[in-house]
Amino acid sequence: MVSLRCKMVVKQELQNLGLHFVNVDLGTVEILEDISQLQRSQLDKNLRRYGLILLDDKRKIIIEKIKSIIVEMVHYSDELPSVNYSDYISEKLGYDYTYLANIFSEVKGMTIQNFIILNKIERVKELLLYDELNLTEISYKLNYSSVAHLSNQFKKVTGLTPSYFKKLKKERFRNLEDL
């Protein structure tokens, strides 16, 4: 659960089932009473309508928490943390980073670092499309060591240069104006 909307949906569905909760937070719900199998099944069914799922496996829960932290860090923070990402994630979850990295790689088939890179590139695309920041400002905002580093990573992931990606956007809008 990354967004406020997801948390609101979970809270509402818990209330609809008459369940009392103490806390609804990043991938976890603390319920005051024992939950019956019928209530659990109904909650799972209701949450799936919103694209949410119940997780029982501790490893899957940890992975969802890692993903949520990264998505929130890259997409919803005004500034990325100045500390090492591994330290940031480890501190947020209270686990050793090596343990987190091993679980993530084993289950997702990619490293946490690759997941961060993919999210950063998606954020770069978003910022390029908004056209409010230039590439230098974007590289600074996302803690790239240089514009060249950002450009190389962007090309490696997308197959396009940032400037060509931006040019494609402008051409799409130009074509729409010709209709």
Rank of each mutant, 00 (worst) to 15 (best):
S151T: 14
I61G: 05
K120P: 06
N46V: 00
R172C: 12
E177M: 12
H75A: 11
E177C: 05
T111I: 02
H149I: 07
A101Y: 04
Q113I: 06
L93Y: 03
V157M: 08
S68R: 06
I70C: 08
K156V: 01
R49T: 06
F104H: 10
G51D: 03
N46R: 06
F173E: 15
S68Q: 09
S90C: 07
Y97F: 15
L52E: 07
L150K: 03
I63H: 02
L55A: 10
L55G: 04
K125C: 13
S151R: 09
R48G: 04
F115G: 02
R48E: 14
L32A: 08
Y97K: 11
T136V: 13
K167M: 14
Y164T: 13
K65N: 07
K92Q: 14
V83Y: 13
F154N: 08
S77G: 03
K120N: 07
V2S: 11
E13C: 00
K120D: 06
D178Q: 14
K170S: 15
S105D: 08
N114F: 04
L4T: 08
S86K: 10
M8G: 04
I138K: 01
F104K: 09
G159S: 11
K108N: 07
E30Q: 08
G159L: 11
K92P: 01
Q113M: 06
K45Q: 09
D87M: 11
Y140A: 12
H75P: 01
P162A: 05
R40N: 01
I66D: 05
F165D: 12
Y144W: 12
L176V: 05
E177Q: 09
D96T: 04
K7W: 00
S146K: 07
Q42F: 02
Y76N: 13
V74S: 10
K156S: 14
L127M: 15
K7H: 05
Q153D: 13
N134Y: 15
R40E: 02
G109P: 08
V124W: 04
R172I: 15
R59W: 05
L32F: 06
E13M: 00
K169L: 12
L128N: 07
S77I: 01
E64R: 07
C6L: 00
N152A: 12
E64L: 01
